[in-house]
Design a binder for these strands. Sequence first.
DNA 1: TGGTTTTATCTCAACGTTGAGATTCTCAGT
DNA 2: ACTGAGAATCTCAACGTTGAGATAAAACCA
Lengths: 168, 168
Amino acid sequence: MSDAVDAIVGQWDQERPELGDALWPVQLIARVQRMNRILDREAKVFCAKHGVEWGEFDVLTTLRRSGPPYALTAGAFLKAAMVTSGAITNRIDKMEAKGLVERVRDGADRRTVRIKLTEHGKQLTDTLMADHLGRYARLLDGLDPEEVDAAAALLRKFLELHGDASIS
Amino acid sequence: MSDAVDAIVGQWDQERPELGDALWPVQLIARVQRMNRILDREAKVFCAKHGVEWGEFDVLTTLRRSGPPYALTAGAFLKAAMVTSGAITNRIDKMEAKGLVERVRDGADRRTVRIKLTEHGKQLTDTLMADHLGRYARLLDGLDPEEVDAAAALLRKFLELHGDASIS
DNA sequence: TGGTTTTATCTCAACGTTGAGATTCTCAGT
DNA sequence: ACTGAGAATCTCAACGTTGAGATAAAACCA
């Protein structure tokens, strides 16, 4: 069995055989990149079906799982979503217009803005999560659960080594 | 040891415990997404140092490993790079201006355009590859090689199941 | 208190990608 | 030869993100 990455590595072996073992990391890294692009496309199709953007869904679930009162500061999203401030402002603007979230200025610190899930936003998120997780399960269908766990553990180690911070 | 994904799953467990095992795929999928973003940032920093865009570097290496005469059609890039035609046109325009590649119209089929690596482009690519692979090696430093292989094998299986086509 | 630094968010122009449509060309069928 | 279907690439407006800078508020310190 072979995939696109095997073909890529095979080409390098033929064109620049002196690279040798230096190509080894490509086996993992290139596959992570390709898998991510497949996930990305899947996610966009899923979100489009439900009238939200992929980035918006990310905001919704981040708020939902943070628990009551379903409110986080804009700064918290920068770390959680790994995007820049301009992107968050843009997302929140549109989600506010759709009635999914609302901006609440903090009483104590008037610089901070709390992004709060509206009741409508909360209900939509709960509805979408079922579909979303079903989609995830189908994506991993056909893979050995133990091997998936092992791969997940390795990626966890990678993330720890590279300081992938937990959300606060 | 725990990473950001453990924290995310932990939040869901607390907020919506009824989801239970449905959360399992998140362990792998979310980590692939987060690792990809780390790789993406690394890659952009690396490319910026050398005056090329990440997408441009992708074109360079794809041409280089295809072997003499280091020329591929625009259509071949659509599949190899997993991007749309507009993006390829845009990339090639800029790379042509930089003297990295040149467009060669096919004699037999005048619809097709062959993107050909210039001598300058080839030399730059070979120079960059050493740095690039060194960077990859450092990224995986600290991980168990056997576990990396196992994870790569699992991702290969995922890609095969989802029809990740080899380049032609 | 007054002045400086730091923090939190928003603004906005530049950038790359998308995706539908236009363009140009090939080829099979008549 | 002519026509229509299909293929390969380019065009271009819309979109989301980036990243530097602006704005405003809080914290620190003299």
